[in-house]
């Protein structure tokens, strides 16, 4: 059979290309432009080559921020994933209380990021905050504005409060899709509670759990608003994560070149990790559908 070649079909792709160009490609290219030039404003650019990249790769400041960032993501994943699974396992499966639980779980997800930050900023204040005040009453020396450990704890607890629901809701959806016969068969087979979790619930949740981990990893790796509102990256630089550092560099110091180089590397790291997740996920699907 002869296939007619009709290249006019390409025009149909055009609208999408235009939208993507304006929403992603052109802004990204602007950043690329900044990253290889030096500028003093006024749209005057001087070619700098890879100088900014070299500077950033060897920068202690960036290394420290990256270290903090990885630590932060690791901690919140280590808390939110098991906690989310635990909550999902213990939520009622149906009936009135299931709806109540779902609404309560969804509430933190609906609050704007900067409001979450403000809530915790006030909540933790030693003078007027409910938490800070009563911790002080109990004789616990807590002050997130001058103790790095306290600042970290506050930021982590805030993130756990804000986002564990997401993991829990995704896992809950995964659990709801397990037919009752599986649990019945497990009872007949005299499987322990742990075995039910390990061989029935966990495998069935694996897909959604991976999505939950991916979403939580990306969001936590890019976190900006909440710690910025609560601690402003302090005390010192102790809670200055990558995004906060980037904004300080770009807007605070107006080092647009290094900041642009920084952004590109930051972007590539997230892209790389997401790609790894995507590959694992599609392999899992393939195995499932075999």
């Amino acid at each position: 059979m002869d296939k007619t070649q009709n290249n006019k079909a390409w025009f149909l792709v055009l609208p999408v290309l235009v939208i993507v160009a304006f929403s992603a490609i052109i802004p990204l290219m602007t950043v690329v432009n900044y990253s290889v030039n030096d500028t003093f404003g006024d749209n005057q650019f001087f070619w700098a080559g890879l100088e900014w990249f070299e500077e950033m790769v060897t920068s202690d400041r960036l290394h420290e921020a990256l270290g903090r960032q990885i630590l932060f993501s690791a901690i919140i994943l280590a808390i939110e994933v098991p906690l989310g699974i635990y909550i999902a396992l213990n939520m009622p499966k149906k009936g009135f209380w299931a709806s109540v639980c779902l609404v309560l779980m969804a509430l933190p997800l609906l609050i704007p990021f900067n409001v979450v930050g403000t809530i915790w900023q006030i909540f933790g204040r030693v003078d007027i905050g409910l938490l800070g005040h009563y911790l002080a009453e109990l004789g616990i020396d807590y002050n997130y504005t001058n103790d790095p450990i306290d600042a970290w704890i506050t930021v982590i607890v805030m993130d756990v409060w804000h986002w564990t629901s997401l993991v829990a809701l995704l896992c809950y959806a995964g659990l709801q899709s397990i037919p009752n016969a599986y649990y019945q068969a497990a009872r007949v087979d005299q499987a322990s509670r742990w075995a039910v979790f390990r061989y029935i619930e966990l495998p069935k949740m694996a897909g959604v759990l991976l999505i939950a981990v991916l979403l939580r990893f990306m969001d936590s790796f890019m976190i900006y608003t909440e710690p910025f509102v609560v601690t402003g990256g302090g005390p010192g630089n102790s809670t200055t994560f990558l995004s906060i550092d980037l904004v300080k560099m770009a807007i605070g110091q107006f080092d647009l070149g290094p900041a642009a180089a920084f952004s590109i590397m930051y972007f590539l790291v997230i892209l790389l990790v997401s790609w790894v997740f995507y590959t694992v996920m599609t392999n899992l699907d393939k195995e499932e559908g075999k």
Binding site: P179, A181, Q184, I200, P203
Partner: peptide
């Protein structure tokens, strides 16, 4: 049971 129940993993 009516529909197969196996431990996938």
């Amino acid at each position: 049971f009516q529909f197969p129940v196996v431990y996938d993993t």
